[in-house]
Each structure stands twice: as structure tokens, then as C-alpha cells.
Design a protein around this nucleic acid. Sequence first.
RNA 1: GUUUCGUUAGCUCAGCCGGUUUAGAGCGCUUGCUUCACACGCAAGAGGUCCGCGGUUCGAAUCCGCGACGAAACACCA
Length: 896
Amino acid sequence: MELASKYNPAEVEGKWYQYWVDNRLFHSEPDGREPYTIVIPPPNVTGVLHMGHMLNNTIQDILVRRARMKGKNALWVPGTDHASIATEAKVVAKLAAQGIRKADLTRDDFLKHAWEWKEEHGGIILKQLRRLGCSCDWDRTAFTMDEVRSRSVIKVFCDLYDKGLIYRGVRMVNWDPKAKTALSDEEVVYKEEHSKLYYLRYYIADQENVTPTGIDGEVLHKDAKGWYAVVATTRPETIMGDTAMCINPNDPKNRWISGHRVIVPLVGREIPVIEDEYVDIEFGTGCLKVTPAHDVNDYMLGEKYNLQTIDIFNDDGSISEAAGIYVGQDRFAVRKQIAIDLDAAGLLEKIEDYTNKVGYSERNADTAIEPKLSMQWFLKMQHFADMALPPVMNDELKFYPPKYKNTYRNWLENIKDWCVSRQLWWGHRIPAYYLPQGGYVVAETIGEAVEKARAKSGDASLTAADLRQDEDVLDTWFSSWLWPISLFDGINNPDNEEIKYYYSTNDLVTGPDIIFFWVARMIMAGYEYRGDMPFRNVYFTGIVRDKLGRKMSKSLGNSPDPIGLIEKYGADGVRMGLMLSAPAGNDIPFDEAICEQGRNFNNKIWNAFRLTQSWTVSDSAAQPESSRLAVEWFDALLARSAAEIDDLMSKYRISEALMTAYKLFWDEFASWYLEIIKPAYGQPIDRLTYESTLSLFENLLLLLHPFMPFITEELWQAVRERKPGESIMNQSVLGIAHQYEEKVISDFDSCKALVTEVRSIRKQKNIAMREALTVETVGKNPLERLNSVIMKMAGLDSIESVDSKSDGTAPFMVGTYEFAVRLGGLIDVDAELAKLDAELAHLEGFLKGVMGKLNNQNFVAHAPAAVVGLERKKQSDAEQKIAAVRENMRRLGRDC
RNA sequence: GUUUCGUUAGCUCAGCCGGUUUAGAGCGCUUGCUUCACACGCAAGAGGUCCGCGGUUCGAAUCCGCGACGAAACACCA
């Protein structure tokens, strides 16, 4: 078989993915084995793959492939999220481009368009995951709005309502004026903004009663029109909603305003001055305008002092009739205009630059959130927080890295009720039905609703047509929080075999940005509906950033196209690149160049295989001693590395596990093992070594498979004839980490050190490899057992045991063993001495440090015997080495 | 502002419940190599007052305190 010198991923990836699918190797059914389960964090159904997904799903695939190879019944359930706000926004935008306004459509018509959109774009991201090699059980692909999941959501809503945990009421909520819906607190992100602070004049209504008291520090304002107070605000456009002014009762400079009434500028309305310690004396002028309808804190003041509430905004953020002026204009246009108008009216004292934080919709990054009073549905959260906190704090449910436990606790300890209703159409419609005579019932089906309505109203003639279902849908996360249960239909059929077998799942892999949105709430739902944790471990990935440390975003254009990367470097190369740069929990500064390292490694593996294929195998040739030793050594090393990888993986130190496998293959297998067993040019390889090598190579492929599934399958299939349907995917790695002798490995390390010393001398002296050298050992050669390997790798003709080193040799040490290379006339005495000087200085410095400890009575008295013993060993080793160096110097003619 | 995390080679990080031959890895860098698997390579190297200052200890990159710088989460002053 002729193999190209470069590995070409494009030729093999599609083929093997199809093979895995055709042979149903990703599919799982409950059986007698131990299950290993992951549920995918469902990506937005109409989304496309980004680097965050690539990272996250690579990790999940590594975990699930490993579990499979360890004999578990491994299942990775895929699916997508309906992403209510994001998807509805996209559909609205698409319709708008066609000249269709959402407002002109009926709910049913709009949903028809939305489903069409979902059918058209949905699932692209799942296809992309296939390119990455994800071993999801596609037979189980779910959608948060499919039949089973929808029924689960409705059932849970009704159940929580019946438990008294869901209520409906008018509250101050975060309002998205673009999507025209309420949002939960978690869906608001605050961004720092450069804005202005406007100082407005509020004239005192009862001018005649103003009595300046003459206290120092008083700030009194008076002009031709009389006394006035000054209010600093960032939002002058809300003055139409002002229903009070507030000062701090402990603020001497504003005492004079106390008890007066003031006039809202431009509006002309008289409002009271109230006093509350909430007001910060130091901020602005210490006078606060109170707009109960448009600010959370003002709302609280309004409740406390029974103030009037004037809602001056329409749902789209324009000014409402209630404002009286600027009606119909946009809030930001009004902010500009009102400043001009106030100034013209002499009501604007000054404008200052100011930096503050403004809330934006997490989904519509360009839309500023408006606090707004509205009727919404809420879920009481204290009950859930009480359940969900302990298991995480006491590590029953583990977070990796654990620092997120604090974040989690912080949120749960300050939990607020969850606004679950959204004024959208795309989502699960709230199963509340309003009666014609007022009031409502909550029911899973319309039939049930009619029954409940009849009972409630006493009117037995009520029919479905008389009931009006709530227009709102539920927050997307209200379906996501059930995901680990609803995927196995555990809400609708709590006793079914699947939920009993697969729940609790094992690992959840997700980003820390959705710890509140999703992780915490899944834990809550898990305990509420299964009485158990939804997953045993949560692995929080970092955020993928660009190499400058910036978040990847569309607007910066710094986000590489994942599929483009796969095409360029191969899926295995990209997977490796991501994993090499991703220690657990740290953000990942992603530089495309690191994929090159992944690609290069693929090529290395490919070429190692190519080498084995270039050999002719002889059944008559005897196995060289060096090959026998190499096999023995590498088998032990493989066992040790497999155990190390197991250990690292159990701690979710995935990048270190991969690095261990990487170095094992490249530095040990390719650079040492293959070089040792490689037959001389044109010579055949003996059968025994050849077969052993293929077995070792296969084991390496098994260890690497979870990280780089495609190339390992390709080569595993090529190493030997395989039966139809066989795959590396379901081979066991359990046998690799067998018992081994540490000494086999440590002796080989010494052997490698010796070879490296000789090569180094060759390089310094410019001696080519084909020129054979002789090495002397003083006394018995401690590495004699490995002579055959040393000779082959260092290019020696013999290793001779001598009583003392001959003249014209370059000495070196491996540990405390002395060796020398015979160089004859090539020896450069000055250079040799200089080297020895440096070595001596180093050793003496080291010895001095050791002696410092040993001469310290306190150290000898207090330190554990083992530590003291070790220092003594260091001392004797150093002394021995120093003696050897001195001896070498004398031999070169130095007097010392 | 509150809380948390971090600061170790040019870069990205490991080591941190104190002691393992005077600190490790990958990449990058330097110097040789067209050695018949691979230049996406081979071989040999260089490179660090472990942020600063104090303290605890026989002994500190590792524990404690203070400071500097950086990051994140949460809360915000209109």
C-alpha cells in the first residue's frame, strides 16, 4: 500500500463517521452494564457552531468515548433548545425583510412561520457537531419544544402552581422594549457607558414659605423666578413620571426643602418632597427625583410612601399618552430633545459627563432594558434554593473547578423569585385559562381547564370556547431546567426504565456563564422531581477568547469559523488544539496556530504507521537484543502512562492527560522506541518485534482515540484485518494499565541520558553518526544490560570497562556513574577544562547548600529522619561527583 | 462597593495540605542536520531574584499578613 507522506483528514473523517453511524456505535439502551451519561447543553436550534461549542463538545466527546472504552454503557444525548427570545427575534427580522409585520399576523400564522424557520435552519448545528466527531446518540435527538418535552414543561408548571410555588402579579420587571417582553434578572447584562448627568431645576411651589436658615454649607438656589432645588439625573426623559422628590432627612444642606412641594420642570406638576435615608447625601445634589414606574428603587419608595405611579412608556419604549408631552417619540430621542427644551426654558442648571452602568438584554445586546411595572408569572425560589445549596457545598455534587461553589452559593443565598412569563409567541404557552366572569384556572389540557373552570365558577355550561388562554409563553430556561429528566421522559413517566437507568447523569460540561440560568436550576428541578442530583460532576469550561484575550464576538470579527478550521487542520487537529490550550476552568486564549500543533501530531502518528508499513517482515530473522529490550521497556512505559492518564482524567485534567499521551507517542515511541527497533536500511524486521510493535501501536491508538477519533480509527483499521462493523470505538483500554516494573523504566532513562551525552559530545566535536565511537566505563558498567540499545542509539562500536579513564577521552556522568568517550586527537583540553570548571562550580554551590542544612543543628534535630537522610545522600553524591570532576581535571593536566 | 480567583521561562500554563539532587511542561527561540517514516521533521541547546515587602518555620514558589497589578461574579448612586 502506497501512503502519502502527509495525513489527509478530509479523506477519512466523513468515511468513519458514517461507519460509526451505520453500525449504530453511538446508540445506547439500558442493559446490565454501568451507565455513563451526558446530556448535551442544547444549543439554540437555529444557531451555528462557534468556538465555545467546539470546546465544550470536544470535552464531552472525549469523556463519553473514554467511558465507552472503559466498558461503560455510554450515552450522550443530543438536542436543541427553542431559544424563545433569540429565535423569535430572528423570525421577526426575517418577516420584516419580507415586509411582514409581526403585529399584522395572528399567533397561529406567526408560529407557522417560526416552525418553518426552525425546519429550515434547525439542526445545522447538529450536523456541524458530526463534523467534529461527536459520538451523540442521534436516535435520541430531542428538542425543547417537541411533544415529550412540551408536555413535561406544562405538567411541571401545573404541578408547581398546585404546590403554591407559582403566582401571578404586578411587579417591577426588566422590560425589553424591542422584543416587547419581560426578562428575568439573569437575562440582563450591565454595561458601563459614558453618559451625562443632567442637573434640573425644580422650583419650590410655595415660594413664600422658603426660609433660609443661614447654616454653613447650605445650598440655596434662587433666581428671578424664585427658589428652586436641583436634581441630578441621567434620565431627564423620565421627569413626566416624577411623583415626588426625595431628600435624606440627615442632609443639612437640603433641610430647607423639607416640607415644601416642588414643580416638575416642563411638566408643571406639583409633587411632594419626601424624606428617606435611602438617598445618598453625597451623590449629585442630594435631591432625588422619584419615578416609581421606571426605577426599581423609586418603585420601593413609591410603595413605602404611597406615591402615585405614572407609566410614561409604551411597550416599545416610546413615550405614552400618560406623559402628556413628547407622546409617541422614542425614549432616546426625547432624552436629547428634553435637554434642549429644558435649557431653553431655563430649567437646566448644567450637564456633566458621567459613567454609569446600563442594563441590556442578554439576547439583544443593543437594546437597553427598561424597568417596567407589569403583570407577570413568578416562581417562588426560596424552596428550591434551600434544596439545591447543600449538595453542592458538601461536594456530593462536585464542581470543577471548585471556585464556582462560591458563585453558586452567593446566588442561592440572595435568590429572588423567577419571572417565568415572556410576552412572546415562540415557546411553551402558559397553561392558564381565564374565565369570562373573571379569575383563571391552571390546567394541563383544555379539557381539564373546562372542568376546573366549571367547578370554580359553578357554571356547568362553560365550554372551551368560553375560556381564554394566557397569551404569554414561558422563559426558555423553564424547559431547559428539566432537560436531564425530560430527555428520558422522567416527568411524564417517572417510573420508566430509561430514567431509572440513566438518571442521575454523570458529567455536565458547560460554561460558567450559565451557572444561574441553567446549572443551578437543573439541580433544583432534579431534587424537586427526582429527589436526586441531575449530574454528579459539573465541568465548567473557560471562555474561548482570541489571542489578545478578548471575547470572541461577531462585531470584532475575531471568531474563526469552526468548520473552516476543521477543513484546514482536520477535526482531530482542531480538537487537539483546543484541548492543548484548555486547562480546566481557565479562559482559553485561542490562537489558530495551536491547531498546527494538532495537525503536526496527526502527521507524526501517520508517519510512524507509514514506517511500520515500509518494513518487510522476516520469519527467520532472530530478534535483536536491543529490540527485545525496547519492547519490554515500552510496554512498561505504556502501562505507567495509561495509569497516569486515568488519574488525570479522573481529575478532569484533560489537557494534561492529552499531553501525557502526546509525549508518550512523540518523545518515547517515535523518537526512541521506533529508532531502536528500526532495522538497518534494506534489512527485514523480525516477526516477533514487528508483531509486538503493532500491538504497542494499537494500544497507543486506543489511548489517543478519545482525543482524536478519526485518525486513530483510520490507522487501527489499517494495522490489521478487522471484521465488518468492528471499531476502535468499542475496544477496551482496561488492559493497558497493567503491572509493570519501575526499574525497567528508570534504567532506560539512564540509558537515554547516556546516549544523549554521547550525542552531545558528537555535536560539539562535529563527529558524524556513522563514525563509530568507543565509550569507557569506570569499573563495572551499571547499564550493561542495556548495552545493545546504547550502542545502537549512540553509534558505538564498544563499551569497555576500565580501571581508570584513558587519556584523550571526554568524560561525563550519568547520575554518579562515570563514563568517557574516546576521542584521541580530537580532544580540546581547554574546552574540556572549561566545561569541568562550570560543572565543579555548580556542584560546589549545590554541596554548600546541602551542607548549610546539615550543619544546622536545628535542622538535624527537627527535620524528619527521611529528609535528613536524603540530604546526606545528596551530600555523598555531590562529593562523589566533585571527586570525579577533580580527577578528570587532573587527568587533563590541571593541578587541583 | 462586596466576594472570589490569579501574578512561576518570550507566550500559555503545571507545581502550592512546606523538604524528592539548588524550579517543570508544551509552544516559541538558538545551533547543527535534505540521516532512505515524517522539514507538519531529526538532533543538541539556551532561557526563571517563582510580583514586592514583612512574618511563621530547622526549612517557603508552596503557609500567614500587608502592598502593587490583573481578571471574574454579584450589587449598585439617581
